[in-house]
């Protein structure tokens, strides 16, 4: 699947805007990103496992609920977008 990162986040960590992965769930994706770009997972998710309040995660066009767990499956996903939510400013 292709993961699209927010432009400013990718720039901050020197990462490309698109990331190809086979991660099975959100948590695995964050761990993968964190291995390649140390510290990035903490910028996307709180330590308690929730995605940060003012970020949105869309999986194949559908926004995950703000309370969605990091165990949310990405097994059959093609496109994941991580976006800055409108609530953040």
């Amino acid at each position: 699947m292709t993961v699209h990162l927010p432009g400013d986040l990718a720039h901050e960590f020197g990462a490309p805007a698109h990331h190809i992965t086979t991660a099975e769930n959100l948590n695995a994706l964050l761990q993968e990103l964190d291995r390649q770009y140390p510290g990035m997972a903490n910028w996307i998710a709180e330590v308690n496992g929730s995605v940060r309040q003012h970020l949105s995660v869309f999986v194949d066009g559908r926004r995950l609920e703000p309370t969605a767990a990091l165990t949310t499956s990405l097994a059959h996903a093609q496109e994941v977008w991580i976006l800055r939510a409108v609530s953040g400013g």
Partner: peptide, 30 residues
């Protein structure tokens, strides 16, 4: 950051370049 949480960025060239601020800040998950 409203989006990505708190961090402390550093510069050693009077602001010409900055890093991402290390591991970040958090209390235990519980």
């Amino acid at each position: 950051s409203e989006f990505y949480g708190p961090s402390i960025c550093r510069s050693q060239d009077f602001g010409a370049s900055w890093d991402t601020g290390g591991s970040g800040f958090h209390y235990a998950a519980d």
